[in-house]
């Protein structure tokens, strides 16, 4: 046992990826399952707010691009569930945890998409924040997750470009379109900052995760990177960041924001967002109301096998 643990520690220290068949501490496994399944759930719950606008996308090109994007999210969900399965949990168990609210997903998807501009904002801000998180996570110590993330990040970059294109077109459009973009930014700005999680001082899982190189950078560091990048982009769009306290610190050469409303953050996480119930019930009914489809596929396969044996 001691040897196994030493090998594990050694692999971590030299940057060797941990693979499914390698020995790993139980808590490392547990934390990874929690993290990867949370990420997978976020991808498939994240399909809902954007899927909400596929049927209303205002041009053929936008409709196809949005469909492609939401399809990508399903693909990400699929390979993340597969990555989590390498740790000894099944997709059904993970779905069950999601449907019974035992597992979490990114809280941002509990906010509603109310206008077409929200589709642009999600691409620009939400995918933008996700890319910052995930390119860092792609360096994590667990092989299947790390490799999955590399692929996911490539696609997320397209999503962000798609979102910025939508926002850019709105901002150079009619006054009504500009207002639509600004109003949408007003709603999505703060929840985007919350995507990086609590301040480092209040992040309960962080220290273990960092020790095991499951997590590489702290929440606050990543959030700062996002703020610095996004504030400059907003200027180019001609949009105003909805934060009267936002100011540039000339010493640190970075933008300082006002305090995030953490009460709102915890309230939404704990189920009180506008869409928490809708999101879970949509996922539940997709899964439960259609169980007969999966049963049919299984039953057909059994019949086929029996026929093949008889022949």
């Amino acid at each position: 046992m001691v040897d196994l643990e030493l090998t594990f520690e050694k692999n971590l220290s030299i940057g060797q990826k941990i693979e499914p068949r390698d020995w790993m501490p139980e808590n490392y496994r547990k934390q990874l399952i929690r993290l990867i399944s949370q990420h997978a759930h976020s991808e498939i719950v994240g399909m809902l707010p954007e899927g909400n606008w596929i049927t209303r996308a205002p041009s053929l090109r936008r409709k196809i691009a949005l469909l492609a994007k939401v399809q990508d999210e399903a693909g990400h969900g699929l390979y993340l569930y597969c990555a989590a399965e390498t740790l000894g949990i099944s997709r059904e168990e993970m779905f069950d945890q999601l449907h019974t609210k035992k597992a979490k997903y990114s809280s941002i998807f509990n906010y509603p998409t109310l206008t077409w501009a929200d589709i642009g904002m999600i691409g620009w801000l939400v995918d933008g924040a996700a890319i910052i998180n995930q390119t860092t996570m792609a360096k994590c110590s667990y092989g299947p997750y790390s490799r999955g993330l590399l692929r996911i990040c490539k696609e997320e970059n397209f999503h962000k470009i798609q979102g910025m294109e939508i926002v850019g077109i709105l901002c150079s459009g009619t006054n009504e379109q500009k207002e639509m973009a600004q109003e949408s930014l007003n709603r999505w700005w703060w929840p985007s900052l919350m995507m990086f999680g609590p301040h480092d001082t209040n992040s309960p899982n962080s220290s273990d995760l960092m020790k095991w190189k499951i997590k590489i950078k702290s929440n606050d560091e990543l959030r700062q990177r996002f703020v610095d990048m996004t504030v400059e982009q907003a200027k180019v769009f001609g949009l105003t960041i909805p934060d009267p306290e936002l100011k540039f610190n000339t010493e640190t050469r970075s933008w300082e924001t006002g305090e995030i409303n953490w009460d709102e953050f915890y309230s939404v996480i704990n189920g009180n967002g506008l869409c928490n119930n809708e999101r879970i019930s949509a996922r539940r009914s997709a899964y439960e109301d259609n169980s007969w489809v999966r049963d049919a596929a299984t039953s057909y396969k059994i019949k086929k096998n029996k026929k093949a044996e008889a022949a």
Partner: peptide
């Protein structure tokens, strides 16, 4: 077809139906 996106019986079908929907709308274009 696009109305299924996010609501399909299995994740693989979310992908398949969204893909077919894109093809159809592409042909329409």
């Amino acid at each position: 077809l696009s109305e299924w996106c996010g609501h399909a019986p299995i994740l693989e079908e979310d992908i398949a139906l969204a893909n077919i929907a894109q093809d159809c709308i592409g042909h329409a274009t």
